[in-house]
């Protein structure tokens, strides 16, 4: 390629554009991370003096600790229940032809198009009509609805990649349908099921909008606790919490990558 001035200008403007985009992607994270170390009790950038005290506050503020454990409880239950229901429906829809099959599929995937606040509000109205309190079952139920489509999609993809002849071979060898499911289908779907579960768990743990409607003081998750905090205080505790969150997530993901193979879990190269 000739190094004409126009060419050079084009190349440099390309580099600048890419750098600008990358900077834009990272900027919020960087600003928040730097703010977390600000000594003063305001969310100001750049900081004048440095301190770690907001990290201490993030750990010691009891609502956050409770929110973390609440969120973890909701996440584990919701993504596990969604996994069982979603995988079962996905297998049924993939395998069998029945009346209103596409309608069923549409209903199960509909949380993708219904806004989260609509789902939260709807569940809340139903719960108050039924007279049930805003306990954990309600939050978990809401999260199951929200993450179901993702588990189903992930199972669908794995099912598409599953060679049906493996199941036929198993049945010719005398295995009953139940035995085929346990010894062939589920073991081979496992990477897809795990990736669906992981995806659901991440979504559920971060979910805020719907949870705000259906949770109470006793059941509020970490994002809701953070929201309530920022309404009262304007100090860098949330920034410190963000840094902790990013660090823990990065640690978990590199662990998953090293020991389980992230590509496999996230279905990047399924088969």
């Amino acid at each position: 390629m000739k190094r004409s001035p126009a060419n050079i200008a084009l190349r440099w403007s390309g580099r600048i554009l890419v750098s600008a985009i990358l900077l834009f992607v990272l900027l919020p994270g960087i600003v928040v991370a730097v703010t977390a170390f600000n000594d003063r009790a305001i969310l100001a950038f750049p900081p004048q003096a440095w301190s770690l005290r907001w990290f201490w506050r993030a750990f010691s503020y009891s609502d956050f600790g409770r929110g973390f454990w609440n969120g973890l409880t909701v996440t584990l239950w919701a993504s596990s229940i969604a996994l069982v229901i979603g995988a079962a429906f996905a297998i049924a829809i993939h395998r069998y032809n029945f009346v209103l099959k596409s309608l069923l599929e549409g209903i199960l995937l509909s949380p993708l198009i219904i806004p989260h606040y609509t789902i939260g509000l709807g569940v809340l109205i139903l719960a108050s009509q039924a007279g049930t309190g805003r306990g954990f079952p309600l939050v978990i139920l809401t999260h199951v609805l929200l993450v179901l489509p993702f588990v189903m999609r992930s199972t669908f993809i794995s099912l598409e990649n599953l060679d049906s002849r493996l199941e036929l071979a198993a049945s010719s060898l005398g295995a009953t349908p139940g035995r085929i499911l346990l010894t062939v289908t589920i073991p081979l779907l496992l990477p897809g099921l795990l990736s669906g579960w992981l995806f659901a768990a991440i979504l559920s743990f971060n979910e805020f909008t719907a949870t705000l409607f259906v949770s109470s003081q006793a059941t509020q998750t970490l994002p809701v606790a953070m929201y309530n905090y920022v309404r009262e205080f304007a100090d860098p505790t949330l920034a410190a919490l963000s840094v902790i969150y990013i660090a823990v997530t990065a640690l978990l993901l590199s662990f998953a990558n090293a020991f389980l193979g992230l590509g496999k879990i996230l279905n990047v190269d399924a088969h």
Partner: peptide
Amino acid sequence: AHQREIGIVF
């Protein structure tokens, strides 16, 4: 199929 006692090679 599972009661037919058939061997198959695909």
